[in-house]
Design a protein around this nucleic acid. Structure first.
Length: 664
DNA sequence: AGCACGCCGACT
DNA sequence: GTCGGCGTGCTC
């Protein structure tokens, strides 16, 4: 009996029933290349096709044991899936009831032959140098948080509120960039790598510029979904090199298999962009926490605000709070809105005066809740909301006198008449950014007006006088800070149908307030109470703690974990039965629904149920959901072949919210 | 997804 | 005795 070489292969398939390792024999001619971590093509006989996969491990076994198929070919001899990355993907997938290959697809780029060849021919860069001046700068910057350097080197889990001013006076890099850059520099000196995760592209640009400005460009690797496929693959090959580096990127960068990981920093973890929209929908914060359980590195959650998710970790002692030696806060002025004020009076006179004063010396930021001109229209006769004739969606106007357009389907409503009274005239309700710009333009003659929203974002504004009207999240940066910030429409923002709206508003306002220059006033208009006080006293962690206590009482996330199950009613009911018997800790009140899904076309007649549980029961819930998903996938084929509806079950774990309507 | 296998009824 | 339809289960 002779021994044969076998490979355990993870298949690149989204099918839940294939999410395990398959054994293949390695034919002699492939043996020299078939290392651990390489991409291979293997036959799946029962499926009658060839599929891609990764060799996760190698082994020897006697030939006679069982018949095995052979590895068909080795796609590339570069080991792109290190064992520790597979282990991480496995753990993250298990925690979220997803497939390991769904995680790895986000991390390991497709092979690009030319990029691989040029990387192989390029000279290996040595260990990146950190100049004495950079090391000294980093030490000084970190000193603004007593104990930071020690926490970073001992691999602590940290939550911190970033400074709104640059860490070095006069530096072009914002304070948050300075702190993250200094932390990465500190670890690079110690020969360790860092991963800095930010929500969007603009953050990435700023971070990249800041790192280069502080002399850390040599170690920098940017990973970015907007890169070309060869550039992504080239960057990934650099990440794999056995030298310390600083990887910056969006949510998927959290998995980067760098050498000697010393730090993962997640910036502004309340931004929804940090949650992967593709199944299984893992948040970068959760992925970082899982990773921290299997590797020894410092984990930093930094922002201008505090999410209830991170505050929960602080409260249970899993994450420690790192405080600035001299906490600096923007100068927030709570400005009430008097009854009966209309038009430009939605800006109270105190805020108006502050803007007039401030705009003489530079840019003033005005944050509004909605883009466009008039976001809502109503019948001038009966005041009923104006609706689209085709789909019933709400109408809005792009400009004064323009034909109304449906906000849901985009159709133009030529010759609109009111459905309830037949009236033909409508009123413009509310002010979007363009209408606000028009109003302010009249009030501030001769002052330049700049509008920035999600569709037409402006990244930077000059230091010259200007009124900058921006929707939340689209605020441009002003190099030396805004001379004043006006946060309008707070009341309206708080009306959104979202159970976490107060937390979100505090994040939007904090992020805008952080753009104010030193001593510049920030007017929060029309918001009082605990929320207004939290911004005014810059005490977001205390607000998050109070919010979390309320959520714990109501058994809402993040005090508990929540899963959603969607699909045809029988599939959801069957899965719920599985979950009920597998997770004994589940209370009857912890299963919500099933209720019919709003009909969106593709899944007509589907229902949704929510299941919530304590963190203690989370692993059992994830395992049970996974089993239900595999069972549904096997059963689903049968009903489909009988001509039945798609029997697929869709499962998500760790929803941010219980709200059934606003969940995507 | 796509293929094999096995059970059962209908035909040579 | 054996051909083939269809439901079921698996994929190294």
């Amino acid at each position: 009996m002779t021994a044969r070489r076998i490979a355990r292969v993870l298949l690149d398939s989204p099918l839940p029933q294939l999410d395990r390792l398959f054994d293949y024999e390695i034919p002699d001619e492939l043996a020299p290349e078939a290392h651990e971590g390489v991409r291979v093509r293997v036959p799946l006989r029962a499926a009658g096709r060839i599929v891609d996969g990764f060799i996760v491990e190698l082994d020897d076994e006697p030939s006679a044991d069982r018949p095995l198929s052979e590895v068909e070919s080795v796609i590339s001899s570069v080991p792109v899936l290190p064992r520790r990355l597979y282990d991480l993907a496995r753990k993250v997938a298990d925690r979220s009831a997803g497939s390991a290959s769904d995680i790895l697809r986000l991390v390991v780029p497709r092979r690009m032959v030319r990029a691989e060849r040029s990387w192989q021919n390029a000279e290996r860069a040595g260990v990146p140098e950190v100049s004495a001046s950079t090391a000294e700068w980093a030490a000084t910057a970190l000193a603004s948080f007593p104990g930071a350097a020690d926490s970073l080197t001992r691999g602590a889990r940290i939550a911190l509120t970033a400074p709104t001013a640059p860490v070095t006076p006069g530096s072009p890099a914002p304070g948050w960039v300075g702190i993250l850059a200094a932390a990465a520099a500190r670890l690079l000196v110690a020969g360790r790598s860092s991963i800095l995760v930010v929500p969007d592209h603009r953050d990435l640009d700023q971070l990249e510029q800041g790192l280069i400005a502080h002399g850390l460009g040599e170690a920098l690797i940017r990973t970015d979904a907007a890169q070309s496929a060869p550039a992504r693959y080239g960057a990934y090959l650099r990440v794999l090199e056995p030298t310390p580096s600083i990887v910056i990127g969006n949510r998927s960068a959290v998995y980067a298999p760098v050498h000697a990981l010393g730090l993962i920093a997640v910036w502004d973890d309340g931004d929804p962009l940090l949650r992967e929209p593709l199944s299984p929908g893992v948040h970068a914060r959760d992925a970082a926490l899982v990773r921290q359980e299997q590797e020894q590195f410092a984990l930093v959650f930094a922002g201008f605000t505090r999410t209830t998710d991170v505050q929960r970790l602080v409260d249970i002692g899993w994450v420690e709070e790192l405080r600035a030696a001299r906490p600096a806060a923007p100068r927030v002025v709570l400005t009430p809105l008097r009854e009966g004020e209309t038009g430009t009076a939605r800006i109270p006179s105190a805020a108006f005066t502050a803007a007039r004063e401030a705009v003489r010396s530079g840019p003033v930021l005005v944050q509004v809740s909605r883009p466009g001109y008039a976001p809502v229209l109503a019948c001038a006769e009966c005041r009923h909301p104006a609706r689209c004739r085709a789909c019933g969606g709400p109408l809005h106007a792009g400009a004064r006198g323009a034909t109304p357009t449906c906000s849901a389907c985009g159709r133009r409503a030529e010759g609109w008449t009111c459905a309830s009274c037949g009236g033909a005239r409508f009123l413009l309700i509310g002010s979007g950014s363009r209408r606000t710009a028009e109003e302010l333009g009249r009030a501030f003659p001769g002052i330049r007006i700049i509008v920035s929203d999600a569709d037409h974002p402006v990244l930077d504004v000059p230091e010259t006088p200007a009124l900058v009207i921006a929707t939340r999240g689209a605020e441009p940066r002003a190099a030396r800070g805004y001379r004043a910030v006006l946060l309008l429409d707070g009341e309206r923002m708080l009306l959104a149908d979202d159970l976490r709206i107060a937390e979100h508003c505090l994040r939007w306002w904090s992020n805008a307030a952080a753009l104010a220059g030193p001593g510049a006033p920030v007017h929060l208009v029309g918001v009082a109470g605990a929320l207004g006080r939290a911004l005014a006293t810059w005490s977001q962690p205390a607000f998050a703690r109070a919010e979390l206590a309320e959520r714990a009482e109501l058994r809402m996330p993040p005090a508990v974990r929540v899963a959603s199950l969607e699909g045809p009613r029988p599939a959801v009911e069957t899965a719920l039965a599985t979950v009920r018997s597998d997770v004994p800790g589940l209370q009857a009140s912890d299963v919500l629904g099933p209720v019919p899904l709003p009909t969106t076309g593709s899944h007509d007649g589907d229902v949704r149920a929510l299941v919530r549980c304590d963190y203690h029961d989370g692993p059992a819930l994830a395992r049970s959901l996974r089993a239900a998903l595999v069972a549904a996938a096997l059963r689903g084929r049968r009903s489909r072949s009988r001509g039945g509806a798609r029997a697929t079950l869709r499962i998500r774990l760790d929803l941010p919210d219980l709200n059934l309507e606003t969940q995507q």
